[in-house]
Nucleic acid binder design. Structure first.
Lengths: 126, 126
DNA sequence: TGATCATATGAGCAAGCATTCATATGTATG
DNA sequence: CATACATATGAATGCTTGCTCATATGATCA
């Protein structure tokens, strides 16, 4: 609830209308931001990047990322709940793999972006 | 520093090696997860979705998102710092627009994903 | 110059989140 | 059945973050 509104005359109705037209609905936008959140953590990004090449068990992921087994297990729960990974039991191991091809494209696009941006001037993170 | 390691024999060296091969380096992965973080908030996702169609001033964005001017201004700072938007002054207004075509693809891909997933079974959000 | 409007910014706060530690579950194997 | 190992989970914790409120900056206009 914005207490802090602009005067009605300060906005640009034509531009707002134009923006509204092509805009996905709220449900799509909420779901999309929720999905993307999954990649928005360095540990999960590494886990997913590793799973792009091969299915892996929990210990493999812990080893690859340098994180504890517990940390990985907690993160896998997040990935399971957002349906980004699926799993399969084999003896004592549980193998995780990507459940979704869109993820591949999202990761590739994000990485292409940062690689292209880098030479021209690094991102300020501050 | 993982206190909570798996035994060395518990991992699968071939799979780990295979995963390592195609994996982007740490810098790429960190930058990519940092970039994607920008979309991982519903307010910022809405702002960016709006800016896909047209440049907009701060009040336009506040109006479109139903957020306060201050909240939008703070979020715009985040978007500026990650070089996702650029701005242009015109009189009292500051018009913001997207500075990056990759963002368009990221948003489109994320939304395509959630739309495809939805019919088959909704995401559990934990 | 003083008033007004658009925008930016700082402090404070509450909620979210990633990790750790301790422990539980579950599967194989002796 | 007991032990060992792989994985999952709960509680606690400290850091991050998105918002509000109050105020500062910066531009226009009378």
């Amino acid at each position: 609830m914005p207490e802090d509104l602009c005067s009605a005359e300060s906005t640009h109705p034509e531009l707002i209308e134009k923006a509204k037209q092509g805009m996905p609905d709220d449900l799509d936008l909420d779901d999309a931001s929720y999905l993307v959140k999954v990649l928005a953590d360095p540990t999960r990004m590494r886990m997913i990047a590793a799973l792009l090449a091969s299915e892996l068990c929990v210990c493999d992921l812990a080893d690859l990322t340098g994180m504890s087994q517990s940390a990985i297990s907690h993160q896998l729960r997040v990935l399971r709940q957002s349906r980004v990974v699926k799993y399969r039991r084999e003896g004592k191991n549980t193998f995780y793999s990507l459940d979704d091809e869109h993820i591949r494209l999202l990761v590739a696009t994000a990485i292409a972006h940062v690689r292209e941006m880098r030479p021209h001037g690094q991102e300020e993170r501050g």
